[in-house]
Amino acid sequence: MKCNRLVDAGRRQFLRGGLVATAGAAAGTMMPERAEAQSALARVSYPANRLANIADLTENEPLDVAYPDERSPGVLLKLGQAVEGGVGPDGDIVGYSVLCPHKGWFLIYNSDDRSFNCPGHYSRFDAEAGGQQIWGHATNNLPQFVLRVDGEGEIYAEGVDELIFGRLSNTL
């Protein structure tokens, strides 16, 4: 019950706040604008889930996880060098949804060039660049998990930065 109320409150705020509050600021320039900061009020409340411990990760080998719930498959990756959105002592641990944001096919990780590849319609996402779509049909870059690592090396996910395929709210 409590959870549902939160969802509704968020949705109302979302309608007031607009889809992406900063999009209009792009007028008159061709510089990409970024929206993170100003749409915070519209976010759903995410659970803080423990996904793994750093000790469970081997460099460049994806570890299957699920977040924000067991029906949303994802992976954790330790990349060996600091990257966008990376956490942990080396700033190199990232987590992504592995449902292609085009039509929801399962992405396959290619460890040679550290990309996620979609057998559905050939889209590709860069694991080292925040899930940026290298080429493809999705209109989102790959949803990335917001991660935190505690003193014990436990890795928690606490948010997602894009809408996950197959759900109209990231938390169901």
Partner: peptide, 13 residues
């Protein structure tokens, strides 16, 4: 930085 919309829910039709 890769562009993210930070939209995590949408109104339902």
């Amino acid at each position: 930085m890769t562009y993210k919309r930070q939209v995590d829910r949408l109104p339902i039709i």
